[in-house]
Design a protein around this nucleic acid. Structure first.
Lengths: 212, 212
DNA sequence: TCATTCAGTAAACAACTGTTTGCCGACTCG
DNA sequence: CGAGTCGGCAAACAGTTGTTTACTGAATGA
């Protein structure tokens, strides 16, 4: 019995390592540049590989970009699920807001380059990447909508109203994430404070929405 | 007396026309591309000019970018002032929200390329342009803060609370603008509807903020 | 009228680009 | 062991790029 069935041969591992090197090099270069201006040679040079080698892993730059999108949002998805798990255990909306903001802050702290990439390419010049980010964000809103619908505060809200609200929350969190990014570590507390205030303002509006 | 004192000689006019051609060509190319990937030769070719001519007008690409930023926000500024003028004449917050959203919608409708440029480069790879957009947006928030402070609803709000609120409004309007952009003309009504709902939700939250 | 200014040009610079080709050599697997 | 797979490389392709140079010729203004 060889390692053919678990897919972790020496060969496979080396290929994956090269692929990782390309992705890391690309991510690094994209901190000061846009994807639409990133070159194949530039990336391979930074990854210590010959230009031709790039095409063993990606058909072109936009494919590398889409891969980075998936990678960037995968970890966030996990953290969000964690935050929702906390919600089930406790009902205080203040605490939920605090933990949501903290989740975002932590994610930006630990995945700076990925988040910067998302912010930069969300409206960037490469359509495939833009669409990938948009689709992922829409799925994200789906999850939030599901969680909101389960809250007792949502009694009397239609499905589309809840969906709207979810999109608002997502947009606010995305905005907060880019604010964390621009503020840097020293301004983190301040950004978190305004993010919490914004969310609380929505909370209040939500409670008094159906009153006339 | 020649035209030396009003600056509208034939020479000046021709130069301005060329400059305009460069800016228009750039703006057009930037609809499918990022500034960090835009080339001097590319722009001059599209503008019907020799590459060297570019440097008679701009020191480099980022200077052209900053010029486009100023240009892009100048018209919006005017429209915003108009919307605020309407406010003074009438107190219904619903109507103010409606007119604010309509101002944004109209601006996107009439300046698609400029708005797309702003959305694309707001977090783009060219620092000078990013900073120019950020500064302009902050001035925008100043104006909104001033207008909010004048509203009777703001009684009991501190200056920083009002400022926070103004930034929230600006972020929401910017988000709405990019939503208009992505939706296209046919989805405009829908985007306007959710934009209004968001603003109303904030309105409600604002009224009930200081209640415990 | 006539010297001056200056927007725009053509040409040259060295360096860069994406992509394809054929090849090598280490891994894979019966 | 031996045939086959395949990730990575060097080289060549036919362009492209930003920027500087010295120039031309029309607009300028005394």
């Amino acid at each position: 019995m060889s390692h053919s069935e678990n897919g972790v041969g020496v060969r496979q591992a080396q290929k994956l390592q090269s692929r990782r090197a390309l992705l890391d090099a690309g991510l690094h270069l994209l901190e000061q540049q846009n994807l639409s201006g990133l070159g194949v040679r530039e990336v391979t040079r930074a990854a210590g590989m010959s230009p031709a080698g790039f095409y063993r892993h990606f058909s072109g730059m936009s494919e590398l970009g889409v891969t980075l999108v998936e990678e960037s949002l995968a970890s966030l998805h996990g953290m969000i699920r964690g935050a929702f798990a906390e919600q089930r255990g406790q009902q205080d909306p203040e605490a939920l807001i605090d933990s949501a903001v903290e989740v975002v802050a932590a994610h930006v702290r630990e995945h700076r380059a990925h988040v910067r990439f998302l912010a930069r390419e969300r409206h960037g010049g490469v359509r495939e990447v833009r669409e990938a980010i948009g689709a992922e964000l829409r799925r994200f809103a789906d999850e939030v909508a599901g969680a909101l619908a389960a809250q007792p505060v949502s009694r009397g809200w239609s499905a589309e109203e809840v969906r709207m609200l979810a999109e608002l929350y997502v947009d606010l969190l995305v905005t907060s994430a880019t604010a964390f990014l621009e503020a840097g570590p020293e301004g983190e507390r301040e950004v978190a404070r305004t993010a919490r205030t914004r969310l609380r303002l929505i909370s209040v509006g939500r409670r008094h929405w159906h009153e006339g």
